[in-house]
Amino acid sequence: MDKVLSFHQGHLPLLISMPHAGLRLSDAVRDGLVESARSLPDTDWHIPQLYDFAQELGASVVAAEYSRFVIDLNRPDDDKPLYAGATTGLYPATLFEGEPLFKEGRAPSAEQRKQYLEQIWRPYHDTIRRELARLREQFGYALLWDAHSIRSLIPHLFDGKLPDFNLGTFNGASCDPALAERLQGVCAQAQGYSHVLNGRFKGGHITRHYGDPANHIHAVQLELAQSTYMEETEPFAYRADLAQPTQQVLQRLLQACLEWAEERYAGSSDKTVNS
Protein backbone atom coordinates (compact mmCIF):
# COMPACT_ATOMS: atom_id res chain seq x y z
CA MET A 1 0.00 0.00 0.00
CA ASP A 2 1.04 3.63 -0.33
CA LYS A 3 0.82 6.19 2.50
CA VAL A 4 -1.55 4.78 5.12
CA LEU A 5 -1.28 7.36 7.92
CA SER A 6 0.03 10.78 8.84
CA PHE A 7 1.96 11.32 12.05
CA HIS A 8 3.25 14.40 13.84
CA GLN A 9 5.38 14.06 16.95
CA GLY A 10 4.76 16.71 19.56
CA HIS A 11 6.49 17.75 22.77
CA LEU A 12 3.71 17.15 25.31
CA PRO A 13 2.67 13.82 26.91
CA LEU A 14 -0.47 13.70 24.75
CA LEU A 15 -1.24 11.63 21.65
CA ILE A 16 -4.38 12.35 19.63
CA SER A 17 -5.59 9.47 17.46
CA MET A 18 -7.93 9.95 14.47
CA PRO A 19 -8.69 6.45 13.17
CA HIS A 20 -11.85 7.19 11.17
CA ALA A 21 -10.92 10.40 9.37
CA GLY A 22 -9.48 8.72 6.27
CA LEU A 23 -11.03 9.08 2.81
CA ARG A 24 -8.86 6.86 0.64
CA LEU A 25 -10.20 3.58 -0.75
CA SER A 26 -8.54 0.49 -2.12
CA ASP A 27 -9.49 -0.43 -5.68
CA ALA A 28 -11.45 -3.47 -4.52
CA VAL A 29 -13.47 -1.48 -1.99
CA ARG A 30 -14.13 1.40 -4.39
CA ASP A 31 -15.34 -0.93 -7.12
CA GLY A 32 -17.59 -2.90 -4.79
CA LEU A 33 -19.42 -0.15 -2.88
CA VAL A 34 -23.14 0.33 -3.30
CA GLU A 35 -24.15 3.71 -4.71
CA SER A 36 -25.27 5.12 -1.34
CA ALA A 37 -21.85 4.37 0.17
CA ARG A 38 -19.78 6.18 -2.45
CA SER A 39 -20.01 9.49 -0.59
CA LEU A 40 -18.43 7.76 2.46
CA PRO A 41 -21.28 8.82 4.77
CA ASP A 42 -19.92 7.06 7.87
CA THR A 43 -16.66 9.01 7.89
CA ASP A 44 -15.57 11.02 10.94
CA TRP A 45 -15.67 14.10 8.74
CA HIS A 46 -13.21 16.99 9.10
CA ILE A 47 -11.66 15.73 12.33
CA PRO A 48 -8.11 16.86 11.39
CA GLN A 49 -9.48 20.32 10.57
CA LEU A 50 -11.49 20.46 13.78
CA TYR A 51 -8.36 19.60 15.79
CA ASP A 52 -6.06 21.81 13.73
CA PHE A 53 -4.92 23.51 16.93
CA ALA A 54 -3.47 20.28 18.35
CA GLN A 55 -0.01 20.49 16.82
CA GLU A 56 0.41 24.09 17.93
CA LEU A 57 -0.68 22.98 21.39
CA GLY A 58 2.21 20.50 21.36
CA ALA A 59 0.35 17.21 21.04
CA SER A 60 1.40 14.27 18.91
CA VAL A 61 -1.19 13.41 16.25
CA VAL A 62 -1.76 10.23 14.23
CA ALA A 63 -4.50 10.17 11.58
CA ALA A 64 -5.68 7.47 9.19
CA GLU A 65 -5.49 7.99 5.44
CA TYR A 66 -7.78 5.09 4.47
CA SER A 67 -11.52 4.96 5.03
CA ARG A 68 -13.06 2.73 7.66
CA PHE A 69 -14.85 1.07 4.73
CA VAL A 70 -11.50 -0.56 3.90
CA ILE A 71 -10.65 -1.59 7.46
CA ASP A 72 -11.77 -0.21 10.81
CA LEU A 73 -8.74 0.81 12.88
CA ASN A 74 -10.86 1.03 16.03
CA ARG A 75 -11.68 -2.67 16.05
CA PRO A 76 -9.48 -5.53 17.33
CA ASP A 77 -7.60 -7.58 14.77
CA ASP A 78 -9.60 -10.68 15.75
CA ASP A 79 -12.84 -8.77 14.95
CA LYS A 80 -14.38 -9.59 18.32
CA PRO A 81 -17.54 -7.45 18.77
CA LEU A 82 -17.13 -4.47 21.10
CA TYR A 83 -20.81 -3.70 21.69
CA ALA A 84 -23.80 -5.92 22.40
CA GLY A 85 -26.12 -3.96 20.11
CA ALA A 86 -25.84 -3.04 16.44
CA THR A 87 -22.30 -2.20 15.42
CA THR A 88 -19.82 -2.57 12.57
CA GLY A 89 -16.81 -4.84 12.46
CA LEU A 90 -13.16 -4.83 11.47
CA TYR A 91 -14.24 -5.20 7.84
CA PRO A 92 -17.56 -3.32 7.72
CA ALA A 93 -20.34 -5.09 5.82
CA THR A 94 -23.10 -2.55 6.44
CA LEU A 95 -23.59 1.20 6.58
CA PHE A 96 -24.54 2.74 9.93
CA GLU A 97 -28.18 2.60 8.85
CA GLY A 98 -27.92 -1.20 8.49
CA GLU A 99 -27.90 -1.31 4.69
CA PRO A 100 -25.36 -3.51 2.86
CA LEU A 101 -22.08 -1.72 2.17
CA PHE A 102 -21.10 -3.77 -0.89
CA LYS A 103 -22.88 -4.96 -4.00
CA GLU A 104 -23.71 -8.66 -3.87
CA GLY A 105 -20.55 -10.71 -4.37
CA ARG A 106 -18.33 -7.59 -4.60
CA ALA A 107 -16.81 -7.40 -1.10
CA PRO A 108 -12.99 -7.62 -0.98
CA SER A 109 -11.54 -11.11 -0.86
CA ALA A 110 -10.06 -12.71 2.24
CA GLU A 111 -6.59 -12.24 0.78
CA GLN A 112 -7.20 -8.55 0.11
CA ARG A 113 -8.49 -8.04 3.63
CA LYS A 114 -5.44 -9.76 5.05
CA GLN A 115 -3.37 -7.22 3.14
CA TYR A 116 -5.40 -4.36 4.66
CA LEU A 117 -4.78 -5.78 8.12
CA GLU A 118 -1.03 -6.04 7.64
CA GLN A 119 -0.46 -2.85 5.65
CA ILE A 120 -3.03 -0.42 7.10
CA TRP A 121 -4.21 -1.63 10.52
CA ARG A 122 -0.85 -2.77 11.92
CA PRO A 123 1.16 0.35 10.99
CA TYR A 124 -1.45 2.54 12.68
CA HIS A 125 -1.37 0.54 15.87
CA ASP A 126 2.41 0.22 15.80
CA THR A 127 2.54 4.03 15.68
CA ILE A 128 0.24 4.37 18.69
CA ARG A 129 2.17 1.77 20.65
CA ARG A 130 5.58 3.31 19.93
CA GLU A 131 4.48 6.86 20.66
CA LEU A 132 2.81 5.95 23.95
CA ALA A 133 5.94 4.07 24.97
CA ARG A 134 8.08 7.10 24.08
CA LEU A 135 5.85 9.49 26.01
CA ARG A 136 5.74 7.26 29.07
CA GLU A 137 9.51 6.88 28.97
CA GLN A 138 10.03 10.62 28.70
CA PHE A 139 7.35 11.89 31.07
CA GLY A 140 6.54 8.89 33.24
CA TYR A 141 2.98 8.84 31.93
CA ALA A 142 1.05 9.24 28.68
CA LEU A 143 -2.36 10.57 27.67
CA LEU A 144 -4.26 9.16 24.68
CA TRP A 145 -7.22 11.03 23.19
CA ASP A 146 -9.14 9.04 20.56
CA ALA A 147 -10.98 11.61 18.42
CA HIS A 148 -14.22 10.60 16.70
CA SER A 149 -17.44 12.07 15.39
CA ILE A 150 -20.77 10.70 14.20
CA ARG A 151 -24.15 11.87 12.98
CA SER A 152 -26.35 12.85 15.88
CA LEU A 153 -29.32 10.79 14.63
CA ILE A 154 -28.78 7.15 13.59
CA PRO A 155 -31.80 5.07 14.69
CA HIS A 156 -30.11 1.79 13.75
CA LEU A 157 -27.31 2.41 16.28
CA PHE A 158 -28.95 4.39 19.09
CA ASP A 159 -32.27 5.82 20.21
CA GLY A 160 -33.02 9.50 19.95
CA LYS A 161 -30.51 12.29 19.43
CA LEU A 162 -26.97 11.72 20.61
CA PRO A 163 -25.52 14.11 23.20
CA ASP A 164 -22.98 16.57 21.79
CA PHE A 165 -19.95 15.30 23.72
CA ASN A 166 -19.82 11.55 24.35
CA LEU A 167 -16.88 10.70 26.60
CA GLY A 168 -15.84 7.06 26.81
CA THR A 169 -13.48 5.49 29.35
CA PHE A 170 -14.65 1.87 29.05
CA ASN A 171 -16.69 2.29 32.24
CA GLY A 172 -13.70 3.71 34.11
CA ALA A 173 -11.14 1.09 33.06
CA SER A 174 -9.14 3.15 30.55
CA CYS A 175 -8.25 6.19 32.64
CA ASP A 176 -8.15 7.44 36.22
CA PRO A 177 -11.71 8.27 37.40
CA ALA A 178 -10.46 11.67 38.57
CA LEU A 179 -9.52 12.54 34.99
CA ALA A 180 -12.96 11.55 33.73
CA GLU A 181 -14.51 13.70 36.45
CA ARG A 182 -12.36 16.65 35.40
CA LEU A 183 -13.48 16.26 31.79
CA GLN A 184 -17.12 16.03 32.78
CA GLY A 185 -16.68 19.29 34.65
CA VAL A 186 -15.38 21.00 31.51
CA CYS A 187 -18.36 19.73 29.51
CA ALA A 188 -20.81 20.81 32.20
CA GLN A 189 -19.46 24.36 31.99
CA ALA A 190 -19.78 24.48 28.19
CA GLN A 191 -23.00 26.43 27.66
CA GLY A 192 -25.28 25.13 24.95
CA TYR A 193 -23.74 21.67 24.76
CA SER A 194 -24.91 18.35 26.19
CA HIS A 195 -22.62 15.53 27.30
CA VAL A 196 -22.54 12.03 28.72
CA LEU A 197 -19.87 9.71 30.14
CA ASN A 198 -19.91 6.06 29.04
CA GLY A 199 -23.27 6.28 27.35
CA ARG A 200 -23.84 4.57 23.99
CA PHE A 201 -20.13 5.01 23.17
CA LYS A 202 -17.85 3.73 25.92
CA GLY A 203 -14.67 3.66 23.86
CA GLY A 204 -13.64 1.33 21.08
CA HIS A 205 -10.64 -0.94 20.71
CA ILE A 206 -8.05 1.85 20.85
CA THR A 207 -9.33 3.23 24.15
CA ARG A 208 -9.83 -0.20 25.68
CA HIS A 209 -6.59 -1.73 24.47
CA TYR A 210 -4.14 1.07 25.23
CA GLY A 211 -5.73 2.64 28.29
CA ASP A 212 -3.81 1.27 31.28
CA PRO A 213 -4.06 3.66 34.23
CA ALA A 214 -2.24 1.26 36.56
CA ASN A 215 0.77 1.73 34.30
CA HIS A 216 0.17 5.47 33.86
CA ILE A 217 -1.39 5.43 30.40
CA HIS A 218 -4.76 7.18 30.46
CA ALA A 219 -7.02 6.87 27.40
CA VAL A 220 -10.27 8.69 26.62
CA GLN A 221 -12.49 8.48 23.55
CA LEU A 222 -14.58 11.43 22.47
CA GLU A 223 -17.44 10.71 20.09
CA LEU A 224 -18.57 14.15 19.02
CA ALA A 225 -21.98 14.77 17.48
CA GLN A 226 -21.34 16.13 13.99
CA SER A 227 -24.16 18.62 14.40
CA THR A 228 -21.75 20.62 16.58
CA TYR A 229 -19.46 21.55 13.68
CA MET A 230 -20.78 20.51 10.25
CA GLU A 231 -23.74 19.71 8.05
CA GLU A 232 -24.72 16.10 8.69
CA THR A 233 -26.08 15.53 5.18
CA GLU A 234 -24.28 15.57 1.84
CA PRO A 235 -22.01 17.20 0.93
CA PHE A 236 -21.07 17.08 4.64
CA ALA A 237 -19.83 20.67 4.66
CA TYR A 238 -17.68 22.03 7.49
CA ARG A 239 -19.45 24.86 9.34
CA ALA A 240 -16.90 27.29 10.74
CA ASP A 241 -19.62 29.15 12.62
CA LEU A 242 -20.50 25.97 14.51
CA ALA A 243 -16.97 24.62 14.68
CA GLN A 244 -15.30 27.60 16.30
CA PRO A 245 -17.10 27.40 19.67
CA THR A 246 -16.84 23.62 19.59
CA GLN A 247 -13.09 23.89 19.08
CA GLN A 248 -12.89 26.07 22.17
CA VAL A 249 -14.48 23.29 24.23
CA LEU A 250 -12.12 20.73 22.69
CA GLN A 251 -9.14 22.87 23.60
CA ARG A 252 -10.37 23.17 27.18
CA LEU A 253 -10.83 19.40 27.36
CA LEU A 254 -7.31 18.67 26.16
CA GLN A 255 -5.87 21.33 28.43
CA ALA A 256 -7.78 19.78 31.33
CA CYS A 257 -6.17 16.42 30.54
CA LEU A 258 -2.70 17.95 30.62
CA GLU A 259 -3.35 19.96 33.78
CA TRP A 260 -4.80 16.95 35.57
CA ALA A 261 -1.78 14.82 34.65
CA GLU A 262 0.67 17.50 35.77
CA GLU A 263 -1.09 17.68 39.13
CA ARG A 264 -1.40 13.89 39.42
CA TYR A 265 2.27 13.25 38.75
CA ALA A 266 3.78 16.37 40.31
CA GLY A 267 6.62 15.42 42.59
CA SER A 268 6.60 11.77 41.53
CA SER A 269 10.05 10.35 41.06
CA ASP A 270 10.89 8.56 37.82
CA LYS A 271 11.26 5.34 39.78
CA THR A 272 7.81 5.68 41.31
CA VAL A 273 6.02 6.68 38.13
CA ASN A 274 7.69 4.11 35.90
CA SER A 275 7.21 1.22 38.28
Rank of each mutant, 00 (worst) to 15 (best):
A21E: 03
G22L: 00
L25Q: 02
D27S: 13
A28E: 15
V29N: 06
D31P: 10
G32Q: 08
V34W: 10
V34E: 14
E35G: 10
E35I: 14
E35Y: 12
S39G: 15
L40G: 11
D42L: 08
D42F: 05
H46A: 12
H46N: 12
I47W: 06
P48A: 10
Y51F: 15
D52C: 10
F53D: 07
Q55E: 15
Q55M: 12
L57K: 03
L57T: 03
G58D: 15
A59T: 09
S60R: 04
A63G: 07
A63H: 05
Y66G: 03
Y66F: 15
S67D: 05
R68E: 05
F69W: 09
V70H: 05
I71M: 06
L73C: 13
N74T: 13
N74M: 11
R75A: 04
P76G: 07
K80Q: 15
Y83E: 11
A84I: 09
T87H: 15
T88S: 08
T88L: 11
A93L: 14
L95E: 03
E97I: 09
G98T: 08
G98Y: 10
P100G: 07
L101R: 00
L101M: 08
G105F: 13
R106W: 11
A107F: 08
E111C: 08
Q112W: 05
R113Q: 14
R113E: 10
K114H: 10
Y116N: 02
L117W: 01
I120L: 06
W121L: 05
W121M: 02
P123S: 04
P123G: 03
H125W: 09
H125E: 08
D126G: 04
D126K: 10
T127R: 08
T127F: 05
I128H: 01
I128Y: 01
R130Y: 09
R130L: 13
E131T: 10
A133T: 14
L135Q: 14
L135H: 02
L135R: 07
R136S: 11
E137N: 09
E137D: 13
L143S: 03
W145F: 15
D146V: 13
D146Q: 03
I150Y: 06
I150V: 12
R151L: 02
S152P: 00
I154S: 02
I154M: 04
P155Q: 02
P155Y: 02
H156V: 00
F158M: 03
F158G: 02
G160D: 01
K161T: 06
P163C: 01
P163K: 01
